[in-house]
Nucleic acid binder design. Structure first.
Ligand code: ZN
Ligand code: ZN
Ligand code: ZN
Ligand code: ZN
Lengths: 144, 144
DNA sequence: CATTAGCATGTTATAAGATAACATAACAGG
DNA sequence: CCTGTTATGTTATCTTATAACATGCTAATG
């Protein structure tokens, strides 16, 4: 069993929420994928073994997993990727490789504060930030 | 005529691209709106005066305007907003107010470098970054 | 004045992404 | 057993975006 699944089970136990079959199935598929997946890839693949999931089921599972920080949604292309750390709620930047599509998660401890201050300087009270990027991951950059 | 339209005309002249009727119309609508608009709002409003624009026309215009930096796409909710500066290609963070939906643009001159370095520390070669946020704009934060 | 190349729009159809609304089930607490 | 809560199943639909191909518009070439 993938480590992330155990993470999820433990996390759900701790927080008193339930790790149901669709939630598990969706997380399994994402954990098995090395790259972000589209919602409808999940919908079709989840049903490959005979139990088809319909869109609402998968979207609900995705929302649940994103809230727990086990999955991240990449806004730029509406894809979803399993978190490569233990589930975190702290913000991270997601950098997607233009060549292999793999995601590199980058924490930005101080930067977030600086951004918030820059916004604050214009009177804007920040509640949430999304940082995404594109480029070349380490292996692909070296290969080039 | 809105200042942004004059900006656009001048910019297009300088760069040798053409500021066509659909492009103008879409920019006019965005410039007139105080808040971001959805593509299909533009599609229906653009045709309110008798000349209906179909989706491809509007999406093409949006792509054009975004490339010129006259319009920004907000990835989180697939909306489009006229740039409040003179058209810039430099990256800015877009902060959307949760109350009034207005956008505050925040330049992050140094932060971008720090982010790139943080990614570089993991071997990731950054090519582009998107920063978006949510919160309360200055007037709404004061009112609260 | 054709001819043609480039660019932009028009048009039709459809793909891709997401949710509303309501029915059903599973289960714990009283 | 009844009831409230949570989650899923189901149907239909809405929203966002693009593919593919036809047409028109302008400007350079000869
Ligand atoms: Zn993560
Ligand atoms: Zn790569
Ligand atoms: Zn701008
Ligand atoms: Zn506001």
């Amino acid at each position: 069993m993938h480590a992330l699944i155990r993470e999820a089970e433990a996390l759900c136990l701790r927080t008193g929420v339930t790790f149901t079959p669709p939630r598990r199935r969706v997380l399994e598929l994402l954990a098995a994928s090395k790259i972000p997946m589209k919602a409808y890839d999940l919908i079709s693949q989840a049903g490959a073994d005979g139990h088809p999931f319909k869109p609402p089921t998968v979207y609900r599972a995705l929302e649940f997993l994103c809230q727990l920080g086990l999955v991240h949604r990449i806004e730029q292309d509406a894809t979803f990727v399993a978190c490569c750390h233990s589930g975190h709620t702290q913000p991270v930047a997601l950098f997607v490789c233009n060549s292999c599509l793999k995601v590199t998660e980058v924490a930005y401890p101080n930067v977030a504060k600086v951004l918030e201050n820059a916004a604050q300087a214009q009177g804007f009270q920040v509640e949430s930030i999304v940082v995404e990027g594109r480029g070349q991951c380490a292996p692909c950059a070296q290969a080039a």
